[in-house]
């Protein structure tokens, strides 16, 4: 396993993926945002405010998706002791935290005109806030422990414990019947929103996904280079 996923392999893979991911990101985000903001119908209940949803819903999906990426990386790091997996978790965390924060902020901006308040303490909002704190805790733990490998493994344990929160987020709208509306796209019986609204939503979602790939690769490269630097420093100290 170590042989097939070393930094050199990763760099080769990243080089071939990067231009594609970047193009997809630019195209889908540009077209998605154009449709979302200018060329889609206003909602008969929500009016123009519905346009916030095109940012909000995919951001919330990404918040959960990135957490799962982090959790899988953490699991790999703990079970197979793979150094790239530790770095993958570290690289993903700030991106996930950013998406979660975006979901929370756009949700609050939408909530003010719709619900008459920026924030309610219902199951969905609270569990997403908890997810944001879990991201912060994960990053803080990485920062706090000096030895990088120990720090990464400690943070990985926390990430795995926090996985419990994911189903709570997903099902909170069903378990607690509160202000936040239930799922309308990710449903077993098919989406319940009109296709004019579904398309921009999916375009933005793909755009976010592509952005994640681009940012993730950038951050992975940064972390790998930092590791190289620290190995070189170690060499110098050991040599001198």
């Amino acid at each position: 396993m170590h042989r097939f996923a070393n930094p050199a392999q990763f760099n080769r893979l990243a080089d071939s993926v990067m231009p594609w991911a970047f193009s997809v990101m630019v195209l889908t985000l540009a077209s998605g945002l154009y449709f979302a903001l200018f060329d889609s119908p206003a909602d008969y209940q929500q009016g123009e405010s519905v346009r916030i949803m095109y940012m909000h819903v995919p951001a919330a999906w990404m918040g959960m998706f990135v957490y799962m990426v982090m959790a899988v990386a953490s699991f790999t790091a703990l079970v197979w002791r793979h150094p790239l997996a530790l770095i993958a978790g570290k690289a993903a965390a700030p991106i996930g935290a950013m998406f979660t924060a975006l979901a929370l902020i756009t949700g609050a901006l939408w909530g003010k005109p719709m619900w008459g308040t920026y924030w309610v303490w219902d199951g969905r909002l609270t569990s997403v806030l908890v997810q944001f704190f879990l991201y912060l805790g994960y990053m803080a733990l990485w920062q706090a422990v000096e030895d990088d490998e120990k720090a990464g493994r400690a943070a990985s344990i926390l990430a795995l414990v926090g996985v419990v929160n994911i189903p709570i987020i997903k099902f909170s709208v069903d378990w607690w019947n509160t202000l936040h509306q239930p799922a309308s796209v990710m449903r077993l019986d098919g989406p319940t929103i009109h296709s004019d609204m579904l398309w921009p939503l999916l375009l933005v979602a793909v755009g976010y996904q592509a952005y994640f790939v681009v940012a993730f690769i950038w951050r992975m490269r940064l972390e790998i280079n930092l590791r190289k630097l620290s190995v070189m420093r170690m060499n110098e100290v050991a040599g001198g």
């Binding site: 609270t126 569990s127 908890v130 704190f133 879990l134 912060l136 805790g137 803080a140 733990l141 706090a144 422990v145 120990k150 400690a154 344990i157 926390l158 414990v161 926090g162 709570i168």
Partner: peptide, 22 residues
């Protein structure tokens, strides 16, 4: 998780308090 962290108390609360919510 924070046993080896100097002054880990604050970090510990940051980690633990969100998990206490349920």
């Amino acid at each position: 998780l924070t046993v080896a962290v100097r002054r880990g108390g604050v970090l510990m609360s940051l980690i633990v308090l969100p998990l206490y919510v349920p």
